[in-house]
């Protein structure tokens, strides 16, 4: 395609109108504590996998809420399920279950 020096940056925006948030509603049902997240980032800071690679739970949880599914499927695989994040979460979110259920959802909706 010819480069006209500009393009419409569709992918930059979170299209809240068209995004599919079924994963979020699914998680809300099986692990309601997901709603408590304030994005403080403690989970990401303590993350065992996060020391080796870019894996960011609080960001994933935000993507889930916004319906930005593209990022989630690959990211969620990096978790070692060690559970440190649920231990440090100030809101008492059951983060481990969220990750497990997200994987299950993605696996069964392939």
């Amino acid at each position: 395609m010819a480069d006209f020096g500009y393009k419409i940056q569709e992918d930059r925006q979170i299209n809240y109108d068209s995004n599919d948030r079924t994963l979020f509603y699914f998680l809300k049902r099986v692990e309601p504590s997901i709603s408590l997240c304030i994005g403080c980032g403690t989970c990401s800071a303590t993350c065992t996998a996060g020391q080796f690679t870019q894996f960011d739970l609080h960001k994933i949880m935000l993507y889930v809420r916004r319906g930005e599914k593209v990022h989630i499927a690959n990211e969620i695989k990096k978790c070692m399920l060690c559970g440190k994040c649920s231990l440090v979460c100030p809101k008492g979110i059951n983060t481990r279950n969220i990750i497990f259920q997200t994987r299950k959802f993605i696996h069964s909706n392939k």
């Binding site: 403080c40 980032g41 403690t42 800071a45 303590t46 996060g50 960011d56 100030p90």
Partner: peptide, 27 residues
């Protein structure tokens, strides 16, 4: 903007803090 997860002492007594810079989106 980020809540500390843990602090560790280094040899000289200073502290290594781990935090997620949530606005940048990186630890």
């Amino acid at each position: 903007r980020g809540r500390l997860s843990e602090a560790n002492e280094t040899i000289d007594g200073s502290l290594l803090v781990k935090v997620e810079d949530t606005l940048v989106g990186r630890p």
